[in-house]
Write a protein that binds this DNA or RNA. Sequence first.
DNA 1: GCAAGCCTGACC
DNA 2: GGTCAGGCTTGC
Length: 318
Amino acid sequence: MPELPEVETVLRGLSRRALGRKIVSVVVHTPSVIAGPVEQFMHDVEGRRFTSLRRKGKALAAELRAANGAPPTHIIIRLGMTGQVTIVPQNSPLQAHTHVRFLFDDGGEEMRFRDPRRFGGIRSCSPEELERIFGRMGPDAREISFEQFEAARRGRTGAIKGWLLNQQMLAGLGNIYADEALFEAHVHPRVVAGRISTARSRELLRAIHKVLNRAVKLQGTSFRDYIDIEGAPGNYGVRLRVYQRQGERCRRCGITLRRIIVCGRSSHFCPKCQPRPRRTAAPGRPRKTKDENRSSEKRRKRAASIFHLGARAGGVFP
DNA sequence: GCAAGCCTGACC
DNA sequence: GGTCAGGCTTGC
């Protein structure tokens, strides 16, 4: 799954292969993956050149500039669970679930956004909107200082696992690296975030940085769908210690690894290396189920909402 | 049936 | 305000 290291790998690939190139036209096969009006998106992108790339957490942003000196626009790409960005010849066969194509003016190539599960999406925005969206996220997980980490963690009553996955606390961890870092730091996923000792917390942040840095070096983990810009898988898979290894032996102590659900997410851990705390986060109560039918309207709203674009920020409640 | 990221909304 | 279940999607 694309988490911080996978997005970083895509960014590095794009800076080699897309930076400086001009997009002559955009083909949108699946409008619902674009947040906001498609015409606006095409207008913001066509005829502009990739001038810089940024990443925060799992979000990738590209700055686009026109030749006439108009203010720059940005596109933000979220890969979701199965998103892929590749650069291929324009005549290469179109794979199923290819949603958007950005045609370059030189060399007969194009950038493609493909996403079978459609949890990802793309939007265009102004520099100000980009700052607003990035500003809503916590510090990037690779850059967060221990002081920032502690300030965000203090007083939290939920499980550490859910806290690590909350992008407003720190941005970039998903299920794989959250589990790997918790194992590395000997922390049980159900420990109450705010009750971790300062010493242990320091270990945890060190583990997060270690796991992420190593994964960046190995160009990410390809669990199912992830590939880089050239279509190559990541190499961190062989380094996984707990993720999806339930039933297998812990490489550290030999005991059988387990899988439990914490905050609705599968969590893989070693019962011996990550002992269960005496006090755990209280599980949430069962909620009423919503009896709503799926609709294209709902899908459109969701595409907008993953970038905070929907009714809340857009029109109805400005 | 399960996996995932990330939103909304129901609860405290 | 914090916390977390539910739901979206589709291939395995």
